[in-house]
Design a protein around this nucleic acid. Structure first.
Lengths: 208, 208
DNA sequence: ACCCCCCCCATCCGTATGGGGGAGGCCTGC
DNA sequence: GCAGGCCTCCCCCATACGGATGGGGGGGGT
């Protein structure tokens, strides 16, 4: 018997998963959580083998929850469930110790294969995302999150505390353009905002 | 004759200064600007000895304008005009090459003394702000913008891309508290937002 | 005793920010 | 000749953010 905890903020998704899993004889769903905190409590109180964890959840995101779990309950294996196949997410998840990664488009059998594999101590990455994963891993060496010249200029000014409007003025661009540079910079760096972007860029020596 | 350019976004202030200066025989006001860009153009086209520059202006701030001036027209002496006597501002101004610093509370004679002194190649810092200046300078060595433990914790999480709400959750604080830590951190570091704060903190090795 | 710093919290409010779209021009390499 | 990168710009919209302002409690110095 594989004991499963489902963590997703959308009820329909939880129901859907439950429905898919309830028929299986070797699976037992022992709990559900709708956000990160609930999940952590649940894991602490109910013994489980695998957590099915949605990447995007309100409050503490799925990746944050994963991070916490890795330290507070390392024996629990985590399978991430996501809509995105963006390299950064996949990579992040794997780095943080996820044992599996599935897209929400996955069917029942794919799901089962993943759970069985993971419960047995293996890793399971869905075919559709192995590409992104490899790409992400590959990118650790060659052109690791490089930014375009313009993106760097913008980021440097942002690090100097300028706001978008001022950056636009200084570079003689429209604010819209500045925003779009920042957006793409965020994506490339795999970050969620200017503060983190600046942090990452500084640490990598992209700016100084 | 000392040729003066007045730069302030408030018309009343400009008028007031003009009124104070027009009576003086050794002073000639050769131009007015209401923002940084105007000022830069003006300085480029009209020869002047001294710029009276408001610290807080829309768009490019007074300090930014000062920075530009220092490189584009180093021969022009700049007297900053400010409402604040905050150490950071004064220090910043001096660092960026201001030759004078006056509070807006300054009277006509103080103003004249400053202009004459500055035009003659001297520096003039109004008495009321020498305190803050010394304090700022003194602080370059001893406890240079140290942050409290809590402020550091918050900043570290901010550098990791967390938003205030998440930081609050993680440290088990209210969001209001997180904000108040950030605010004081900004003040101590002399920065204007989280991005710059993270940059400064990283560069100084306060976080990593 | 008093002051100052650190810790913690709150409310109001304007606006900067970031996420979601999309679009056209230019240049380079295949 | 056209795919793909870069540069440039636009819209909408929710909300995260920062500024202003205020408070209370505790501990350490002088």
């Amino acid at each position: 018997m594989i004991r499963i905890i489902i963590a997703d903020d959308h009820r329909v998704v939880r129901e859907g998963l439950r429905w898919m899993l309830d028929g299986e004889s070797e699976i037992e769903v022992v709990g559900e959580a709708s956000d990160g905190d609930e999940l952590l409590e649940l894991v602490a109180s109910v013994p489980a083998d695998v957590v099915l964890l949605d990447v995007s959840m309100p409050g503490m995101g799925g990746l944050d929850a994963l991070e916490q779990l890795s330290s507070s309950a390392p024996q629990v294996r985590v399978v991430m469930l996501s809509m995105h196949d963006k390299p950064v997410y996949v990579r992040r998840a794997v780095e943080l110790g996820a044992a599996g990664y599935l897209l929400k488009s996955a069917g029942r059998d794919e799901l089962m294969r993943a759970l069985v594999a993971v419960a047995a101590g293996n890793a399971y990455i869905q075919g559709e995302v192995t590409g992104p994963l490899l790409e992400a891993v590959a990118s650790t060496e060659p052109d690791e999150g490089k930014l375009s010249p313009r993106e760097l200029e913008v980021l440097a000014l942002v690090a100097a505390g300028k706001e978008n409007k001022q950056v636009a003025r200084e570079l003689e661009l429209s604010e819209a353009t500045v925003k779009s540079y920042l957006k793409s910079a965020y994506e490339r760096l795999g970050v969620s905002g200017r503060a983190e972007a600046v942090a990452v860029a500084l640490r990598r020596g992209l700016i100084d």
